[in-house]
């Protein structure tokens, strides 16, 4: 059994919802990177309705080409592979990606809040204790953070918050389909 856990919009304004039992591929077709790139080049526009799944070692140059995908799934082979966090921030902040950014693989309870802050907004979870905890509404995180990142902003000291930052975040929301 896997659980698809979503956290609402990338700005985190809406309450979290729990879609128990839904499957990754049930919602949308997802292709490996090479196939998705081939479809992007065939001129049909089909890539704009097809998700893409990538590994944590995907080259930054390839990331730049993924912004049209409605769904990007990052496979996390091991929860200690921190590259997924950089990929999420590059997609959201550098490439302005506003589609669904999902993480799958070794996704564990204690990393979800961190992945969220990096920019992920859905989580495919196979780890049973994590599924149980989320079902109980238990999502551990710390309430206050020192980094004013645009996604799921937690409580932050006012002098650490940038007016420019919230303008950027609003802009991203407007572009969201």
């Amino acid at each position: 059994m896997t659980l698809l856990f979503r956290t609402g919009t990338i700005a985190g304004a809406r309450p979290r919802s729990l879609d128990a039992g839904s499957q990754t591929n049930a919602s949308r077709a997802v292709l490996p990177l090479a196939e998705w790139l081939a479809r992007a080049e065939d001129g049909s526009g089909a890539h704009e309705t097809t998700g893409v799944v990538i590994d944590a070692d995907t080259k930054p140059a390839d990331l730049a080409t993924l912004s049209d995908a409605p769904l990007i799934v990052v496979r996390l082979a091991k929860f200690t592979d921190g590259r997924a966090y950089s990929i999420a921030r590059i997609m959201r902040e550098t490439h302005g990606y506003t589609g669904e950014l999902r993480v799958t693989g070794d996704v564990l309870l204690d990393q979800i809040a961190l992945l969220q802050r990096a920019g992920f907004d859905s989580f495919e979870i196979a780890h049973l204790p994590t599924i149980d905890a989320l079902a109980r509404g238990h999502l551990p995180s710390i309430a206050s953070c020192y980094q004013d990142l645009p996604h799921m902003p937690p409580a932050i000291r006012p002098t650490l918050r940038r007016a420019a930052r919230s303008a950027t975040a609003n802009h991203s929301n407007e572009r969201r389909p």
Binding site: T80, Y85, L114, C145, Y146, Q147
Partner: peptide, 14 residues
Amino acid sequence: RQWSSVHPEFLFLP
């Protein structure tokens, strides 16, 4: 100290 504390991108470095 503040910036690096629980910075979500840099908790699982090589």
